[in-house]
Write a protein that binds this DNA or RNA. Structure first.
Length: 225
DNA sequence: TATATGATTGCCT
DNA sequence: GGCAATCATATAG
């Protein structure tokens, strides 16, 4: 099975994200092959207030000024952008668009297909098969991509995803694709940039940001669901 | 230089 | 369903 080529990612994140559903993410670990079918993704675009460092990266005059970690989002398409949140979880993104343009797709959830035994060892907190990789931080841990602190930069950050040890394989497209706003973002919560397989048990349990905000404002008026 | 906060998870009640 | 853990980065002063 040949990997998805770099050209697959040389497009808008809004095209790549839904097309990635059904594809298989593979990590060749020392302990063996770990893999899962992608069931949930999110797109992060240029002009996107939710993207890393967008203010520094685009400047007040709108000129493109890559800065800090955001600079790697301008890199060549088909390379990884691995970012750590809350000091514990690594999130896997793939850079999209030609070099010089910023954009990425976040892989949020997998249906495990290979190496489940090793995944269970790496994720003792998972009480069922569906919980092995039903979240962006969980899936990197399940695939053996977790790196202990104090590492600030992941060894596979910037890796080309058309070759080992980390790559994507084409898969059966899902029977249906649903969209929603993204999960856990405060800016750009109105954009329907999340793509997932509706009803799939391995989709992450998080609540889309627009619903969260709506619930919060409703509670300010004392209403009860 | 100082402080606020997040593309989360898991354990607690 | 709430909340703590604990650090890099962004933003303000």
């Amino acid at each position: 099975m040949s990997p998805l080529p770099v050209s697959f990612f040389d497009r808008s994140p809004l095209d790549v994200a839904p097309d990635l559903l059904g594809a298989v993410l593979v990590h060749e670990t020392p302990a063996g092959r770990a893999a899962g079918r992608i069931v949930e993704t999110e797109a992060y675009t240029d002009d996107d207030p939710a993207m890393h460092g967008w203010q520094a990266a685009f400047g007040l005059d709108g000129r493109v000024v890559p800065a800090g970690r955001a600079a790697d989002l301008f890199g060549p398409p088909g390379t990884t952008y691995l970012y750590k949140v809350y000091y514990r979880s690594w999130l896997l993104n793939v850079v999209c668009l030609p070099e010089g343009q910023a954009g990425a797709v976040l892989v949020r959830a997998l249906e495990p297909t290979d190496g489940l035994e090793a995944m269970r060892e790496r994720r003792p907190a998972a009480r069922s098969e569906r919980e092995l990789a039903n979240g962006p931080g969980k899936l990197t841990e399940a695939l053996g991509l977790w790196i202990a602190p104090p590492a600030a930069r992941h060894p596979l950050h910037g890796h080309r995803v058309d070759a080992p040890p980390l790559w994507f394989e084409p898969g059966e497209p899902p029977p249906a694709v649903a969209t929603s706003s993204r999960i856990g973002v405060s800016r750009g919560a109105d954009r329907a940039y999340r793509f997932f397989v509706p009803g799939h048990p391995c989709v992450s349990p998080g609540e889309p940001s627009d619903q969260r905000l709506a619930r919060r404002s409703a509670s300010q008026f004392g209403s009860r669901p």
